[in-house]
Structures are given as C-alpha cells and as structure tokens.
C-alpha cells in the first residue's frame, strides 16, 4: 500500500508545531500502525531528517504508553483497540492519514507525538491506593469477595492509563480514568476504609488539571479497554456522599 501521512511535528514543549506531509510507500497490510511508523522513521533517518518521536513500549495493548490521534480519533478507527494493536489492513491504498498527539492542557507535548501524562500519576498519588504497608496483611482468604464483585472491580481495573479518554473528550476531562481507579478499589471490601477520603482527594486533584465532564460519552468509545461510563456515575454518587461522610468522620474525631 502507498499512503500519505500528515504528521504533527513539534521540536519541544514550547516550540510551535505543524502538520508535515510524509509519504509511506510499500506498506504491508500485515504491519501494525507503529511498524508502519518505524519504516517511515527508518526512511527519514536515511534522508537525514530527524525521526518522528512517538511513545510506545509493549506493543500489545497493555502498557498504555502508545496513543495517537489518527484521523481525529483517539487510537484510530478500530473500537476497543490501542494504537499499537491497530493494523494497516484497516486502511486502504492511497489513503491520507492525519496523525496527531493527544491534545489536552493536562497533557503537555514533549516532542512531536509524545506527551507528558504525569498528571495521571498525581491523581493516583492523591488517593488511588489502599494503605497496606508491606508485611501487614492478613491471610488472603480471610477476606471473602463475591465473584461478581471481583469481576466488576476487574472491569474497572483493566484501565491502562493511556489517556485516550481525555484526548477524545471535547472538554479534556479525565473522569473515566479517575472513576475507573475509584471503582476498582471502592467496589472491593479491602477498599472500604478509605472509600470516602479517596474519592474526594482524587476528584479534587483531577479538577486541578482537567476539564469538567458534560456526559458526551466520547471517552467510552475511545477507550481501548472499553471501560464503562457507569463508573463515572458511581464516582459522582460517592463524591456527593463523601462530602457529608468525611465531614462527619472529622467531627467524630473531635
């Protein structure tokens, strides 16, 4: 296949950026999207043009490192698929493909297609954990967890932290990411003690960096792990409750 790429090039965080055309010739439909970019980079290198920077690592849809806007869609046209798992057979000979980085104030551009998603770490640091210092746990089977609950928690825990939800959202909101982590932990019995402080801390931290959610639902469509919008509803409910519960807890503590 022969394709034309229009790729976002930006030399650094504060440099101006623009779309640049590159041909991608003799592309095999068997290649993954990132392998296609590898070849383009190989050719650019040979011509003395600096290769296109893009993040990636596992190339099997689990590390959450890859993430490109492909023709305006986060992770491209195939549903439930991260960029690294997308294959060129989903495109046609002669296509023009526009490739851009995630664009969101919460994700500053590092270079070209690579962005800085460390704001996600800040949200987890605020409360996305269960406090259990090493060695303090009791026997695992002392806490029973209904199978359905474990499965539901796992559905939320499947989030790979790629940021497609933010990139796809017209408001650049991070509700789906944040809600998935809150649901993962707060659905489990182990997560109950910190349930109300967690949701408050994480939502407040999220709002420092990201826009607000107006229920477009684009995030769910873009999510390579097909994480459900229902978790956002759960988070909102818990957040409201937490406002009362946390205050009561504090007043009890005197």
């Amino acid at each position: 296949m022969d394709l034309t790429l229009q790729v976002w090039r930006q030399a650094g965080p504060n440099a101006p950026g623009r779309l640049v055309d590159y041909p991608a010739k003799d592309i095999s439909p068997e290649m993954s999207f990132l392998e296609m970019l590898d070849i383009v980079n190989e050719n650019l290198n040979a011509q003395g043009i600096e290769p296109i920077a893009f993040d990636h690592d596992c190339r099997e849809g689990i590390c959450g490192m890859c993430g490109l806007m492909i023709n305006g869609l986060a992770h491209g046209p195939q549903l439930g698929t991260a960029t690294c798992q997308l294959h060129m057979r989903k495109f046609n000979d002669g296509d023009t493909i526009v490739i851009e980085p995630w664009k969101a104030a919460g994700f500053p551009i590092v270079r070209d297609l690579a962005v800085d998603r460390s704001t996600f770490d800040r949200i987890i640091e605020a409360g996305g954990f269960i406090t259990v210092p090493t060695g303090s746990a009791s026997d695992a089977n002392l806490t029973l967890v209904p199978k359905e609950v474990a499965e539901w928690s796992m559905d939320a825990a499947a989030c790979i932290g790629c940021g497609a939800c933010v990139a796809a959202c017209p408001n650049s909101a991070a509700q789906l990411f944040t809600a998935a982590k809150i649901a993962h932990l707060s659905l489990l019995p182990q997560g109950q003690p910190e349930r109300w402080t967690r949701v408050e801390a994480m939502v407040d931290k999220m709002e420092e960096f990201f826009g607000s959610c107006t229920n477009h639902g684009e995030c769910e469509t873009a999510c390579p792990k097909e994480i459900s919008l229902d978790f956002i509803a759960l988070m909102n409910k818990d957040y409201m409750k937490a406002k009362f519960k946390n205050r009561r807890l504090v007043s009890q503590a005197g």
């Binding site: 269960i130 259990v132 090493t134 060695g135 746990a137 695992a140 806490t143 489990l188 182990q190």
Partner: peptide
Amino acid sequence: QATAQGVP
C-alpha cells in the same frame, strides 16, 4: 499483600 492492596 497483593490481595490487601486490592489486586482483583
């Protein structure tokens, strides 16, 4: 340890 951390 992992179970207590919430590993599902």
